[in-house]
Amino acid sequence: MTKLRGLLPAVLLGLLVLLPAPALAAGEPATTVSVVVAQDPTPPPGPVLDPAESERANSEKTKNQLIAGGAAVVLLGIVLWGRRVRAKRRKSG
Rank of each mutant, 00 (worst) to 15 (best):
K3Y: 14
K3M: 14
K3V: 14
L4F: 15
R5T: 05
G6V: 08
L7P: 04
L8Q: 06
A10D: 10
A10H: 14
L12S: 01
L12Y: 14
L13I: 15
L15P: 04
L15G: 04
L16S: 03
V17F: 11
L18T: 13
L18I: 11
P20F: 12
A21P: 09
P22R: 13
P22A: 03
P22F: 09
A23W: 12
L24G: 12
L24Y: 10
L24D: 05
L24F: 11
L24S: 12
A25N: 01
A25V: 06
A26S: 15
G27Y: 05
P29K: 06
A30C: 08
A30Q: 11
A30M: 15
T31L: 13
T32Y: 10
V35D: 05
A38D: 05
Q39W: 03
P41C: 15
P41L: 11
P41A: 01
T42P: 10
T42M: 11
G46K: 15
G46A: 09
L49K: 13
D50C: 01
P51A: 09
P51S: 10
P51K: 12
A52L: 03
E53D: 08
E53C: 03
S54T: 00
E55C: 01
R56V: 09
A57T: 00
A57C: 00
S59P: 00
S59K: 00
E60L: 04
K61P: 07
K61Q: 06
K61A: 07
K63A: 02
Q65S: 01
L66F: 12
L66H: 13
I67Q: 02
G69D: 13
A71M: 09
A72F: 06
V73Q: 09
L75H: 04
G77I: 09
I78K: 06
I78P: 13
V79I: 02
V79C: 05
L80R: 12
L80A: 07
G82Q: 10
R84P: 15
V85P: 12
V85T: 13
V85F: 05
R86P: 02
R86E: 12
A87Q: 06
K88M: 06
R89K: 09
R89Y: 02
R90E: 14
K91I: 12
S92R: 03
S92M: 11
G93K: 14
G93L: 10
G93W: 14
G93D: 09
